[in-house]
Amino acid sequence: MSTVEVEPYRPRLVSTRLLRSELRIIFGRARNIAGFGVLASVPIIVAIALALAGSPEAGEGPPFLSQVTSNGLFLALAALGAELPLFLPLAVAAISGDAIAGEANIGTLRYLLTVPVQRTRLLAVKYAAIAIFATAMVLLVATVGVVLGLALFGTGPVTLLSGTQVGTAEGLWRLLLVCGYLSACLAAFGAVGLFVSTLTEQPIGATIAVVGLAVVSQILGVMPSLSAIHEYLPTHYWLAFGDLLRDPISTDQVSRGLLSAAVYALIFWTAAWARFGGKDVTS
C-alpha cells in the first residue's frame, strides 16, 4: 500500500525567479544598453585623447589623469572620478526612477501585482535589481578603463596618494575596493530613486527629480557656509573613495560613508515600502 503525500502549496522563501526576470528586463532593454555604452565611452574617450594629445602636466587636470600614461590602471580611476558627479548618479536615477513609475506608466504595474507576490517582496526585488545595476555599471567603467589603460599605456608601479609605490596586483585590489565603495554609495542613492518612483507615474519626472537631488547635494556640499549640514548630504562621502588609495588605508571617512549609505538605504526603502504598500494601483 502506498500513500501519496500532497504537499500544500507554499511559496519558496527564497526564489530568484522574480529577480532574474527583473534583471533580464533591466539589462535587456535597448535604452539601458545604450546607457551602458555611454558610461563605457568615457574611459574610451579619455584614453584616445591621452594617446593623441599626451597627458597633462602633473597638478593640472582632473585627479589621476596625469598618472594614466605611466600606469594604465589610473585610467579606470580617472574615468570613475569623471563620471561620479553626474553620469553615474544619472544612470542610477534613470533605473531607480523607472522601477515603479515606469511600470505604472506603461500599465504593467497592475498585472505585475496580480502575480502571487507580496508588494514588499516586489519592492525588495526591485531594489536588489537597482543595487546590482549600480554595481554592474561601476564595474563596467572600471573594467573598460583597466583593459584599455593596460593595453594602451601598459603597467608599472602604482603610486598611491601617500607617495608609496605598490605592484599591479595591489593596485587592482585597491581599485576593486574603490568599486565596492562606490557601488554601495550609488546603491544607497538608488533607494532615494525607488522612493521617488513610488510617488509618481511619470518615470522621467522621478529621474529628473533624483538627478536634481544629486546635483543640488553636490552644490550644497562645496558651500563653506553650510559646512554644518555637509555630512548629512547623500553625496558627501562619495569622494572619500580616495582614502582607499592611501598607505595605509584610512578607514575613518570610508566607514562613515558606508554608515551614511546604510542609513539612506534604510530610511528611503522603508519610505518606499510605506508609500507603495498602501498605494491604490490604478494603472
Binding site: 602633473a58 589621476f64 596625469s66 598618472q67 603610486t159 596618494l161 607617495g163 580616495g242 592611501r246 584610512s250
Partner: peptide, 25 residues
C-alpha cells in the same frame, strides 16, 4: 589628507622628504 590628494612631510633620521600627490613632486 585632501580630497583625492595628500601632502606628506617625513623625517627619517637625517633625511627630510616632502611629497605632494597633486603635483607629483
Amino acid at each position: 589628507l585632501g580630497t583625492l590628494g595628500e601632502s606628506d612631510l617625513i623625517r627619517n633620521g637625517d633625511d627630510v622628504w616632502t611629497w605632494s600627490s597633486a603635483s607629483n613632486e
